[in-house]
Write a protein that binds this DNA or RNA. Structure first.
Lengths: 227, 227
DNA sequence: TTCATAGTTCGATCATAATCGAACCATCGA
DNA sequence: TCGATGGTTCGATTATGATCGAACTATGAA
């Protein structure tokens, strides 16, 4: 009979392999249907449905009905951040799945972290923005500077349109492979979307890998120089 | 048959109520014996022993034999950080234990986060150090500046002695109650120890609460002004 | 030695929750 | 209206793991 936050509930939700598989799949940022998640987790649709109900009840997942489909997604950035954090600890403690395939280096280089860019390139982007003074600490939180807003505009985005009282504009997110922060929040999401729109990269189907084209990577390096 | 980090193992370890209680107890930063942890979790010594073996095997806990006692502690700062992160999400999602007692406000004000100061005062300390330029971003990581080293020396600590290649000197840690970062790492630990030594505060037995004396809090406010 | 305390290991029991077949509900297309 | 597809709910089965008594090991004290 203690008080305080109960981490056992969260742990139990994530601790089931089928649910962990679903959550990992949702880290791709794409909303998936119950059937897709069932296939991803290797269970039938019935069991997937009960798992999803539990995840939703626990606040880890939210669903959006669309016709006769139900699309499931992570509830918010916080959930993505926690999962990324757990992945980081799992890697450091050696808790890896059986087969570490050829995708692994690609994952370390560039992948989506729920809805923003992670991996080496994600970290580079974040560092580059900070070093050039586009992001600054504002009383403990991360803020976009005036110069940063100009940069974002030049990049083809409207910084004012990104502001949303319910969501942080810029938020650091700890990267599991690099052990460094990359950029989350509305700006992180928008920058990744813009990178897709510019044709610099696209998602590898069914994985978290972000494939940059040769020209796209060169353009990325020019836009976000390492130093 | 996927690759990548397996968060289910971690989740399952944390997802058991008895183990979650033990881990929460160890967030106090004190090393505890198996018997103490058994009492804390409300199970017999036998079951506690099996739980602790699992936690150790999973890399969340390490043990140190001392005579016929075995002292258990969290394996490292990373584990503490993850648990703090889970507590934060648990609070935001409303996963609280039954009774939220009178200790709660005290916990929000000042508590230990494994081995460093968290809560409002922890956040204030961190912000104060950063605003005065004592901590700065060094290529994505947090570094102690020259001015910061002077400050630390004035505070009665030897900054050079704190450097340890195996451990970060300064690391941000997300605070569950304030949703802002406070200071972890070797410096965070040392500062809290120094605060104890100075007699400004002491640990409330059996809880994570850090009790500041009236004079201690005044001295803390003077040393780490809010602005 | 001998006894006491701290902790582990084993084995049996028990509770929980994951699983899936089957039936049911909802939406879409024709 | 009717079938087809996507999803949920129900019930029975099953597997996993938490639990503790009992026996055992290890350290310390007398």
């Amino acid at each position: 009979m203690k008080d305080g936050p109960d981490i056992a509930l969260l742990g139990a939700l994530i601790g089931n392999p089928a649910r962990a598989n679903m959550l990992t799949a949702l880290m791709s940022g794409k909303a998936l249907t119950a059937s897709e998640l069932a296939a991803e987790a290797g269970v039938t649709l019935q069991t997937a449905s009960t798992h999803l109900a539990k995840l939703e009840h626990g606040g880890l997942v939210r669903q959006r009905k669309q016709g006769r489909h139900r699309y499931f997604a992570l509830a918010d950035d916080d959930v993505g951040g926690l999962l990324e954090g757990m992945m980081g600890l799992a890697v450091r403690k050696g808790h890896l799945r059986a087969r570490t395939g050829p995708r692994d280096p690609a994952l370390r280089k560039a992948r989506v972290c729920y809805n923003h860019l992670a991996g080496e390139l994600g970290v580079r982007l974040f560092d580059s923005l900070r070093r050039r003074g586009f992001l600054a600490d504002d009383d403990g939180a991360l803020a976009l500077t005036a110069a940063g807003a100009d940069f974002v505009r030049d990049f083809g985005l409207d910084p004012d349109a990104l502001r949303d009282p319910r969501r942080a504009l810029c938020r650091p997110c700890l990267d599991w492979s690099a052990r460094r922060s990359h950029l989350a929040g509305a700006l992180g999401t928008a920058l990744l979307d813009r990178i897709y729109d510019l044709g610099w990269a696209r998602r590898q189907e069914g994985t978290r890998v972000v494939d940059f084209t040769r020209r796209g990577e060169a353009a990325f390096n020019a836009a976000f120089p390492a130093d």
